[in-house]
Design a protein around this nucleic acid. Structure first.
Lengths: 210, 210
DNA sequence: CCTGTGCAGTAACAAAGGTTACAGAGGCTT
DNA sequence: AAGCCTCTGTAACCTTTGTTACTGCACAGG
C-alpha cells in the first residue's frame, strides 16, 4: 500500500502526510462493476484513487440515469467532500468502470489535514476545481450537443479511460449512460458503422477511426 | 462599506479578517445589466456579494447561451476561485440581474487567507460545495426535464431571486437563458396563461400561481 | 397623427429523439 | 438438436422542439 501510494501521491504530498494516510487509510481492491456508493448513502470515507477508474452517475426520481464523469488515478471525489460538509448523503452513484485500487480515508481526517498540510489543502482545492470543470463540460455536452455528437464523445472518453479501443457494452448500457433509448443508440451506432468509424459486434464494438 | 460587510459577513468571519477585507477590498455598486465578467476574461479579483444578484451564464462556440445559476448575498463565485488556480481565464459570463453591491478582493489574498483564517477556509469550501450542488441541479433540469417544466422552474427561481412576481423580460430574453427559441417560449407561456398560472404583457409577465 | 421598430401571436413545416412492435441472430443450456 | 434468452436491426409512428414566415399591435419619436 505504501508503495502504491508513494508512486501516485509521493510527488504532491509531504512524507508526514503520506505516513498519516497509511496509518488511518484502508486499502481496497474493487472489481469492475462494483457499486461503491449510491444516491442517498451516507458518506463515511473519502476515496483516493491509485489505479483504475470509477464512473460517477446521476439519477432522477424516475430512475433515469446520466453519466457525469470518470474518476481516474490521482483523483478523489469532491462530491464526497461536499457531502461531508452538508447533510452528508451522497448525491451521486459511483461504480467501478474497471478493476480499481484505492485508499479510503475517514472523513474526520479531511478537516484536520486541511488545517495541517498545505499540500492536502491544495489537493482538495484542485480536486474541487477539476470536478467543477468536469461538470461544466458535461453540461456543455448535454445542453449544446446533439445525440450523435454526444455518442461520439462518449465512445472516445470511454476508450481513453479504459485504454481500450474495444467498448465492452451493449447498446442498452450505452443508452443508460447517455440517458437515451436503446433504439436511438442502435440507429446512431449503425450510422457510425456505415461511415467506417466503428465496427459493431454482439456485446461489444470496435473503434476504428473517430 | 464596513457596515455592509459586517452585516452580511460579521457572523462567519473573524474581526481580524473583516479588517483585512476592508483594507484590501474594493467596494462596488453595480447597476442592473452590467457585465462583470465575460468568457475568456482574465480573473483579477474575487467578488463577495453584499446585496443584489448576479446571473452566471455559459456559452458555447456558436454563441448559444445558457443560464447556470444566480449568485446572491453572502455568495462568492467558485468559478473565479477555480480560475485562480488554473489558467485563470473565466469559463463563464456574469451579469448583474439587479442593482448589486459587492466587494472585490484581490486573488493573491485568497491563498494567503486560506492558510491564515479557518473561517475563510470554511467559507471557500462551502462556496465550492454550493456551486457544485447548483451545477448538479442545473444539470438535472436540462437532462431530465422538458422545456415546459424548465420554463416554470426558471420563472419561479427568477421571482425568488428578484423578490418580484413580475418578470421583466421579453420572450426572446427568456429563450436565451433557457437556450431555446422565442417561438417555443411564446407557445409555452401562452399555455401557462391559458392555465391561469401567469398573465402576459408586453415586455413583462405576472406570476399568478405557479 | 403618422410611422418605424421591436414584441408577441400563430400557422405550417422540419428535424431530432423517443416509443412500440416485431423479426432474426447469436450463444447458452438441456 | 431444440429451446430459450438476450442482443441487435428495422419500420412505423408520435411528441417535442426548433425554424421560417407572416401578421398585428404597442409605443416612441418625429
Amino acid at each position: 500500500m505504501i508503495q502504491d501510494l508513494t508512486t501516485e501521491y509521493g510527488k504532491i504530498f509531504e512524507e508526514e502526510l503520506i505516513n498519516e494516510i497509511v496509518q488511518v487509510g484502508t486499502f481496497k481492491e474493487i472489481p469492475e462493476g462494483y457499486k461503491l456508493m449510491d444516491i442517498g448513502d451516507f458518506v463515511r470515507g473519502m476515496p483516493l484513487l491509485i489505479s483504475g477508474a470509477i464512473k460517477i452517475l446521476r439519477e432522477d426520481e424516475d430512475g433515469d440515469e446520466l453519466l457525469l464523469y470518470y474518476l481516474e488515478k490521482g483523483d478523489t471525489c469532491s462530491m464526497t467532500m461536499a457531502c461531508c460538509m452538508g447533510d452528508n448523503k451522497s448525491e451521486i452513484r459511483a461504480i467501478a468502470e474497471m478493476d480499481t485500487k484505492l485508499i479510503i480515508v475517514p472523513i474526520q481526517k479531511m478537516e484536520e489535514w486541511t488545517t495541517k498540510y498545505k499540500s492536502w489543502r491544495n489537493f482538495v482545492f484542485n480536486s474541487y476545481h477539476e470536478r467543477l470543470n468536469e461538470l461544466l463540460s458535461t453540461l456543455d455536452n448535454i445542453a449544446f450537443q446533439k445525440m450523435d455528437e454526444r455518442l461520439i464523445g462518449y465512445l472516445k472518453e470511454k476508450a481513453r479511460v479504459t485504454k481500450d479501443n474495444i467498448i465492452h457494452n451493449t447498446h442498452q448500457e450505452i443508452a443508460y449512460d447517455l440517458h437515451s433509448s436503446r433504439v436511438v443508440i442502435s440507429r446512431l451506432l449503425k450510422k457510425l458503422e456505415e461511415m467506417g468509424k466503428i465496427k459493431l459486434h454482439r456485446n461489444y464494438l470496435e473503434i476504428l477511426d473517430l
